[in-house]
Design a protein around this nucleic acid. Structure first.
Lengths: 130, 130
DNA sequence: CAAACCTACAACCATTTAGTTGTAACTTAG
DNA sequence: CTAAGTTACAACTAAATGGTTGTAGGTTTG
C-alpha cells in the first residue's frame, strides 16, 4: 500500500519536462473564467494591469491577483514600462501545456484501449476497432 | 466599460462545445496530483474506489471525494458491479479537453504573433495608447 | 513641486477545498 | 443469518481561494 506522492517530485514523465508542481499551477491557473478571459485579452496585445482591471467588475487588486496566478504558472510575463507593467502572454508555456495534456490523453487513453481489448474477450469483433 | 462574465454562459467558443462551467470543472479536476495519478491508474483498467484508496496514504473518503471531482468533470465514470463501483476513465472528455486546450493555444498565440509585429512597429507611439 | 496614476502588498472576510472521523445501508462470503 | 467488505454521506477542521479596502512607493504630468 501507499504510494506517497512527495510534495514536489521533479521528473514525473511527459515530454515537455514539467514537474508536478508546475502542472498543478498551470491547470489551476486555467481553471478560472476570469483568468482565461485575461489570457484572451492579453493575446491581442500587451495590456497594463489597470487596462485589464478597467474591463472587469471586480477591483484592481482582484485582477492583480489573477495576473499573479497566471504569472506564477508562467502563462504570462510582466514587463515594466514606466509607471505601468505590461502583461503579455507566454506562448511557450501554453504550447508546453498543450503538449502535456495531449501526452496525458495519449497515455491515459492508449492503455484503456489495450485493457479494453483484454476485458472485451467476449466481444471478439469489437477488438478490431481502430 | 465592464464585461461581466455571467455566472454561466453557454457557448463561449471553442470547437468541442464546452461551456465555461465545464472548462472550470475539467481544469480544476486536473490541477491536483492525486487526481491525475488516479486518472493514470484507472487508465490501466477499471478499479473500485477501495482498490484506489488502498494505493494512497489518505483515507477512503478522501479518495472517494477525488473520484467525485473527476466524475463531476466527466473525466471518469462509475459503473456498479455488485457491492463495488468500478471507476473507469472517460476518453471522450479527455479528448475534448485536449482539443479545447489546443484551440486555446491556437487562439491565444496566433494573435500575439500578429500583434507582436504591430507592436514592434509602433514601439514609438506607445504614448497615445495610455 | 504637487497631483494624479499605477502597482505592490498587507489585513481582513466569506467561501471552497481537501482532509478527517463516524454512521448507515447495501452486497457478498461463510 | 452473520460478518466482513464497499460505498455514501454528514459533520467537522485547517488551509487555500477569491474577493474586499487601505496604505505606501515609484513615475508621469501639469
Amino acid at each position: 500500500m501507499v504510494v506517497g506522492l512527495p510534495k514536489s517530485d521533479r521528473k514525473t514523465f511527459p515530454g515537455p519536462g514539467f514537474d508536478e508542481e508546475e502542472v498543478d499551477l498551470i491547470f489551476h491557473a486555467l481553471a478560472d473564467r476570469t483568468r482565461r478571459d485575461i489570457m484572451g485579452k492579453v493575446s491581442q496585445g500587451e495590456q497594463s494591469i489597470s487596462d485589464l482591471a478597467r474591463q472587469y467588475e471586480v477591483s484592481f487588486a482582484a485582477i492583480q491577483k489573477h495576473v499573479s496566478v497566471l504569472e506564477r504558472a508562467s502563462l504570462v510575463t510582466k514587463r515594466v514600462d514606466g509607471r505601468q507593467k505590461l502583461v503579455q502572454n507566454n506562448p511557450e508555456t501554453l504550447r508546453r501545456a498543450t503538449n502535456l495534456l495531449a501526452e496525458y490523453e495519449r497515455i491515459w487513453t492508449h492503455r484503456i484501449n489495450a485493457i479494453g481489448q483484454i476485458l472485451d474477450q467476449e466481444k471478439t469483433e469489437e477488438r478490431k476497432i481502430r
